[in-house]
Amino acid sequence: MRNWPFFDLSITTPRLVLRVPSLEDLDELGDRAAEGIHEDGFMPFLFPWTDGDPAERARRTAQYHFRAWGALTADDWALEFAVLYEGQVIGTQGIQGKDFAVTREAGTGSWLGRRFHGQGIGTEMRAAVLHLAFAGLGARHAVTEAFEDNHASLAVTRKLGYREDGIRMHARKGEPVVTQRFRLAAEDWSETPGIEIRNLGPCLPLLGLDAS
Rank of each mutant, 00 (worst) to 15 (best):
R2E: 14
F7Q: 07
F7H: 10
L9W: 03
P14A: 13
P14I: 13
R19Q: 14
V20L: 11
V20W: 14
P21V: 00
L23K: 00
L26V: 01
D27P: 01
E28V: 02
L29M: 08
D31N: 07
A34W: 05
A34L: 06
G36H: 10
H38G: 09
D40V: 13
D40K: 07
D40E: 13
G41V: 12
F47D: 15
P48W: 01
W49F: 15
D51L: 14
D53C: 06
P54L: 06
A55Y: 13
A55N: 13
R57S: 08
A58G: 14
R59H: 03
R60S: 01
T61M: 12
T61E: 15
Q63W: 02
Q63K: 06
Q63T: 00
Y64M: 11
Y64K: 03
F66H: 12
A68Y: 04
A68M: 10
G70Q: 11
L72P: 07
L72Y: 05
L72T: 11
A74P: 04
D76W: 10
W77N: 07
A78T: 14
A78E: 14
L79Q: 02
L79I: 15
A82T: 05
V83H: 07
L84T: 08
V89N: 03
K98M: 00
D99Q: 08
D99S: 09
F100L: 05
A101H: 09
A101M: 02
V102H: 01
T103Y: 01
R104N: 07
E105D: 12
A106N: 02
A106M: 05
G107A: 09
G107W: 04
G107N: 07
T108A: 05
L112E: 07
L112S: 04
G113I: 03
G113L: 03
R114K: 08
R114G: 04
R115V: 09
G118F: 04
Q119E: 08
T123E: 08
V129T: 08
A135Y: 02
G138P: 02
G138Y: 02
R140N: 08
R140M: 05
T144G: 08
T144F: 06
A146I: 01
F147L: 06
D149C: 05
N150Y: 02
H151S: 08
H151L: 14
H151F: 09
H151W: 05
L154A: 09
T157N: 04
R158S: 02
G161R: 06
R163C: 10
G166E: 13
G166Y: 07
H170Y: 15
A171D: 15
A171C: 11
P176S: 11
Q180H: 14
Q180S: 12
R181E: 12
R181A: 14
L184M: 07
A185F: 12
A186P: 01
E187C: 15
E187P: 08
W189S: 10
T192G: 06
G194L: 15
I195R: 04
R198I: 09
L200S: 10
L200F: 09
P202E: 13
P205G: 11
P205E: 10
L207S: 12
L207N: 10
A211N: 13
